[in-house]
Amino acid sequence: MTTDVDTDRKPAWRAHGTARRSTHVLRLRVSCALVAVTVLAVLLVPPLVQLDQQAVDLAAKLQPPGWAHPFGTDDVGRDLLLRCVYGLRVSLLVGVVAALTATVIGTAVGAAAGALGGRADRLVMRLVDTLSSVPHLLLGIFIVAMFRPGVWPVVISVALTHWLSTARIVRAEVLSLRSRPFVDAAVSGGASRWRVTVRHLLPGVLPQAGLAAVLMVPHAMWHESALSFLGLGLPTHTASLGTLIQGARGSLLAGQWWPTLFPGLFLILPTLAIAGLAGAWRERINPRRRSELML
């Protein structure tokens, strides 16, 4: 209970319902901190630290974590911390670019289907259903197999397999917004189909699409890792979290855990942090949240 100072009268003001907030705030702070550290690390470390991540030192191969190499070294003596940061950089880049591309495609398709309705809607959504019925990874493998290994085939593969869920979300939102009286009012005010979509429907679904995009980043990172782990993604000399884990398979069987553990953690922690941020965002954009004034 808190009492705040009031100027001329005596009322003792009481607070209500504050119990749930603290854990929310804590989760949000931890998530923010982790995401910030991740982003700063991948942005600042490579230009600032003049170390070669590819520097091979066969004399220091497979050293456990210690002062010289906090994360240890891999089977050709490369520093794992540096490799992990570079790997995260590539994975994050692939994740963000692929998620953005997928969101743009998904939003456009979903909004078009929802706004047009009727036959166009049915046709598009059947296509989406058909594509969704094929396992993502299988479809992704099919796409990368058509290109030479590299970053862009992976981005394309991830983007082309992940826009489906966004399209579904956006279409459902557009359909629910479309039947609101404010859309009726816009139509009656002379707004064209295009204007209704762009000015009233799309802005209403963008928070949802943005949320889907954020949640898709870890998804895309995992997808990239999976492709690389299978040897279908990035070429093995490019450090990405997937190639690192793949390269560490041999040493894991020999009892050296660090080349697997640290890239794994680098994959999991940003994922949790992004999910935490997305959770806080979802709470903010929840349409059912009542206005603070309860008007």
Binding site: F182, A185, A186, H200, G204
Partner: peptide, 8 residues
């Protein structure tokens, strides 16, 4: 009016 006004 709540439903008839674009909330943004």
């Amino acid at each position: 009016p709540r439903l008839a006004a674009d909330p943004r």
